[in-house]
């Protein structure tokens, strides 16, 4: 057998990014950093995530304002994944910090296959207008050491979106899992197992 000790550049970036995504989802509320491909700002982090998880075997959907098309083209180009209706997509990307009610329509899996629930990716702005909202949010559950809970490390997520996720994931283990990414590469994970309280 021939050894293959060198990993190509894209493979290497995906592998590193994946380890960070795994870290993000197993430590909800904490921020990790992804390494994005060049030339796709402001969606470098979203494309980096797509690149390491999406391919022709999955369907994705992009929701949002004018820049949604740019994001969709970038993801399709980087992964070869097929676009899909929101209700059937495995991955749903929001080109902004809120889902505009879209998250509610994403699939949550069935009782015998909760793992079929979608993965949501929210693209946050680099300089959020409101940064103090996050102190009204408390996260507890698997991956969070403090039993009293923690405040999410990333700011700029509207409180209504947290409320939205509370509702969507009320029927655990059915639900959706979310990543929040910033153009700088910062990522925070919020799996459905995280209990969210908004004050």
């Amino acid at each position: 057998m021939r050894e293959a000790h060198s990993m190509n550049h894209d493979g290497r970036r995906s592998q590193k990014n994946y380890r960070n995504l795994l870290q993000a989802l197993s430590r909800p509320g904490r921020v990790v950093r992804l390494d994005g491909p060049d030339g796709v700002l402001p969606f470098a982090a979203a494309v980096a995530l797509a690149e390491c998880l999406l391919d022709s075997e999955v369907g994705f959907c992009v929701i949002g304002n004018g820049s949604a098309q740019t994001l969709q083209t970038a993801i399709a180009g980087a992964t070869g994944a097929r676009t899909e209706r929101l209700e059937a997509a495995d991955f749903v990307f929001f080109s902004e910090a809120g889902s505009r009610g879209g998250a509610r329509l994403a699939k949550r899996g069935g009782p015998e296959s909760p793992e079929d629930g979608a993965t949501l990716v929210y693209c946050l702005e680099s300089q959020p207008a409101v940064v103090r909202d996050r102190f009204r949010v408390r996260l507890t559950g698997p991956g969070i050491p403090e039993s009293s809970g923690i405040v999410p490390e990333i700011s700029g997520i509207p409180l209504e979106e947290f409320q939205e996720l509370v509702t969507i994931n009320a029927d655990y283990p059915l639900g959706v899992d979310a990543f929040f990414v910033r153009p700088s590469g910062e990522v925070m994970g919020l799996p459905r197992s995280t209990r969210i309280q908004v004050r």
Binding site: G11, Y18, L21, C52, L54, D55, E115, D177, S193
Partner: peptide, 21 residues
């Protein structure tokens, strides 16, 4: 191959999101 890795990676994330499932 990269396709197999991606599939396993996707599944691992879901496994983490639903502990014990």
């Amino acid at each position: 191959d990269e396709g197999a890795k991606r599939e396993i990676r996707r599944r691992m994330l879901k496994a983490v999101a639903i502990p014990g499932c």
